[in-house]
Computed example of a mutant assay.
Amino acid sequence: MTDSPKPFHIVFLLFDGITQLDFTGPAQALSRIPGAVIHTAAKGMGPIQTDSGFAILPSTQLSDCPQADLLCVPGGFGTREVIQDEAALQFLRDQAAAARYVTSVCTGSLALGAAGLLGGKRATSHWAYTSLLAKFGATHEKARVVRDGNLFTAGGVTSGIDFALTVVAEIAGQRLAETIQLSLEYDPQPPFDSGHPDRADPDVLALLQERVYDKALRDIEDIIG
């Protein structure tokens, strides 16, 4: 008889305005670690409104959440509320103190920064917000996944899948990570080479910044001070 694997607790912080793929992409891969137990933690048990027009339900309140082996903070426009929410920030501090891995996707790194968890660290975030990392004492490293000790930060949205596979390999070996990648058929071949500002059409980049990110960046800068 084979012994069951020891539970490996994975905690995602949920909040209104979350980018759902920041959460669901990594969760899909991380959930396949032997013994993985996924906890979705929020301030209350009501529906969490995502940026995709649908809601998701948390599995636990912050006050009742088990200790994470791996803590992950997704991003989204709701991050601006998280970085002002002392209860959420204290939750991150408390969880990070005993977690084996502290991680983020997209602007989730800004929440880690606001909780005081990025000081002196190398980190990344969504490309539109990387300039803010220095305000939290972090050094931006240009990569989809950045590791500094037990801290793993991922760039924008889809890079969360890369981060998850990287962590799976760290925890359970490359062979399992490759098996999960194959099972998910994660084989990106996008129809356009426009997934990073270094390669995107300058007009597309300028339009997106003007319509979306310039104001969002100013809003967070005003909050941080």
Rank of each mutant, 00 (worst) to 15 (best):
L118T: 10
T60S: 09
V82G: 02
V73C: 06
S131Q: 12
A98L: 11
L176T: 10
D162K: 13
Q174L: 14
F136C: 01
P197Q: 02
Q189L: 09
R199S: 06
D69E: 09
T166F: 01
A97L: 12
G149K: 12
T158D: 08
L118D: 03
L110G: 01
V73Q: 05
A200C: 06
F152A: 06
A143M: 05
A123M: 01
C72I: 15
G116I: 14
P188I: 09
S194N: 11
R147W: 01
G155I: 01
S194E: 13
E86H: 10
D198K: 12
E141L: 10
V157A: 06
T124L: 03
K142T: 10
S194Q: 15
R175I: 09
L57M: 14
Q90P: 07
A87R: 12
E170G: 07
Y129I: 08
Y129M: 15
E141F: 07
V82A: 03
V82T: 06
A169K: 15
G149P: 09
I180Y: 02
V146P: 00
L57W: 10
R93D: 08
T130Y: 01
T107W: 11
I83L: 01
R80F: 02
G119D: 13
Q181V: 05
Y129R: 07
G160S: 11
H196Q: 13
F136P: 04
A134W: 03
C106F: 06
Q95R: 09
A68K: 07
L112R: 00
Q174K: 12
E178H: 10
D69C: 00
G119P: 00
D69L: 04
A143D: 12
G116C: 07
R100M: 12
D148E: 00
S131W: 05
D69I: 02
T107R: 08
S63K: 15
Q174T: 13
C106V: 12
R199C: 05
H196A: 15
D148A: 08
S59D: 09
Q90E: 15
A134R: 08
Q90T: 15
R175M: 10
A128Y: 01
V167L: 14
P191D: 11
E185D: 15
L176R: 13
F163I: 03
S159V: 08
V146Y: 00
S183F: 07
E185I: 13
A68S: 02
T103Y: 05
L165G: 02
C65P: 01
D201T: 01
D201W: 00
G137V: 04
A164C: 09
R175E: 15
R93Q: 14
R80S: 11
